[in-house]
Design a protein around this nucleic acid. Structure first.
Lengths: 217, 217
DNA sequence: CGGCATCCACAGTGATACTG
DNA sequence: CAGTATCACTGTGGATGCCG
């Protein structure tokens, strides 16, 4: 993208991350750091491969992304966020919160990947019982990809991958999972809509209330 | 912009505000709400007029911007942010904070407009003496445009336009003003670099410390 | 003058094919 | 696996024209 050529912090930021696909590439690296080129491509349905290669070079040059020649057993290069790139987290979170309500009128044939569930999980859930025992929840979308949500000490952290000892496993259509996370439906309605809940259901009461914006999901 | 077609809140947000110029148009409406078309164009150096018209229609359709037929004396239409548009504030702030350090290596011929000073003023300044008396500071960049900074009760608010009874007037080259706001230079250095400070200098000590990111300005 | 629409040259984008 | 090459297409920037 050509520069805006404005002495303004926002314009300068957009000069770096305002290109089409750039922030979504960074989203993927946030969700699962240390990705191969093909993993990135698979995580970005719709991107053209030449464009991904071009963006990665731009972001690397801007100091947001770093490539690493993977350690011996693997013969590939891995893409990481630099510390400077990780400072984009507030930008991603603000965008995600603002965009949440727009999911309500999403198209049925929008692409979806299970590891994306980590985003609404972290942005919509709160631990209401700070003194409660830690617990682990596994979200499993229809594509089989699992996300682990760790709740402890008032903090909610989500990461890609299955849980070791989940107290609760939530699996089913991704749109139902997201609406449950947003508090738009309760567990009864979720089960009716095709969700499967296995484990300790009571821990769900500990989560929430969802952020106000989530109400429109 | 064509949609990313991903069931992801970030992608949906970028479908709406990810187009080139869109977030900068919203920046202008944040800084000075109720703008005429030409005011908007003048506040966005480099934009093509047809593109501005196109973006405004898209943003209006998305519910971010609303147009208003101005009240009788004036015969023009004014552009506003809707409540939904004003919810983009966290996005703009996060972007501005991240982009701040990039101003350090800005080009000398980057465009600048005085009312943009409201952005670094709000993002970099803090009122350290919550119990202190309110005061007013006027920033006046080289283009003559003034920004008023109101400090009271631990809050810092900046708005476009001159101050009624400024306790301090800061005028000079915009890059020097920004570096002073960021705490990269002190008043002595600022004056050496061409800044003029008129009024009560001691109130500057009440402002700051600047956010960590600002240190690289 | 404010608020666009039209036109054009060019840069960015997307789909597919191909290569080391 | 990790890209590069090609090419049709679309978006962008700049200039200019139009109309109340």
């Amino acid at each position: 993208m050509r520069s805006y050529r404005q002495y303004c912090a926002m314009a300068k930021a957009l000069d770096v991350v305002g290109d089409r696909w750039s922030l979504l590439i960074i989203r993927e690296l946030f969700l699962r750091d240390g990705l191969r080129y093909t993993d990135l491509r698979d995580g970005l349905p719709g991107i053209a491969t030449n464009l991904l290669a071009h963006r990665l070079r731009e972001l690397e040059h801007a100091g947001v992304v770093a490539r690493e020649d993977a350690p011996p057993p693997i013969a590939t290069t891995l893409y990481h966020l630099t510390p400077r790139g990780r400072e984009l987290r507030p930008v991603l979170r603000a965008l995600g919160r603002w965009g949440g309500p727009l999911l309500a009128n999403a198209s049925d044939d929008d692409a979806f990947l299970g590891h994306w569930l980590a985003l609404p999980a972290e942005s919509l859930l709160r631990d209401r019982v700070v003194s409660g025992p830690p617990f682990e929840m596994e979200l499993r979308a229809d594509d089989g990809q699992a996300v682990t949500v760790d709740v402890a000490d008032g903090e909610v952290q989500a990461r890609s991958g299955p849980a070791e000892h989940p107290d609760l496993v939530v699996s089913g259509p991704h749109r139902v999972i997201v609406r449950l996370l947003a508090g738009r439906i309760d567990t009864t309605e979720a089960v009716t809509a095709g969700l499967s809940l296995e484990g300790n259901l009571e821990i769900l009461a500990r989560l929430g209330p969802p952020a106000p914006l989530a109400q429109s999901l």
